[in-house]
């Protein structure tokens, strides 16, 4: 969870958007963190580099919990 928050903050920082302090399974990537489609693309790439999982490979993810689920399914 901490690693995901770190990655999210890198993406937000690269677009000059405010950092986040806490995240939970139900955090919504677009509505809670203000990520747009370009940010989600960068998030995908950074998660893929870390976990070798393409979270958008089969369908859209909207929450932090869904990202963790995709990463855990891979393990």
């Amino acid at each position: 969870m901490n690693k995901i928050r770190e990655i999210l903050n890198t993406v937000l920082e690269n677009r000059g958007k405010p950092q986040i302090n806490s995240i939970s399974d139900s955090s919504d990537l677009r509505n809670d963190f203000g990520l747009d489609s370009l940010d989600l693309a960068e998030l995908t790439v950074r998660i893929e580099a870390e976990y070798d999982v393409d979270i958008f490979q089969d369908g859209i993810v909207t929450t932090v919990g869904e990202i963790l689920e995709k990463i855990n399914n891979k393990k």
């Binding site: 693309a41 960068e42 995908t44 790439v45 950074r46 580099a49």
Partner: peptide, 9 residues
């Protein structure tokens, strides 16, 4: 290529 650009800024 674009993904690689994004990863490395």
């Amino acid at each position: 290529v674009i993904r690689q650009f994004l990863l490395h800024n």
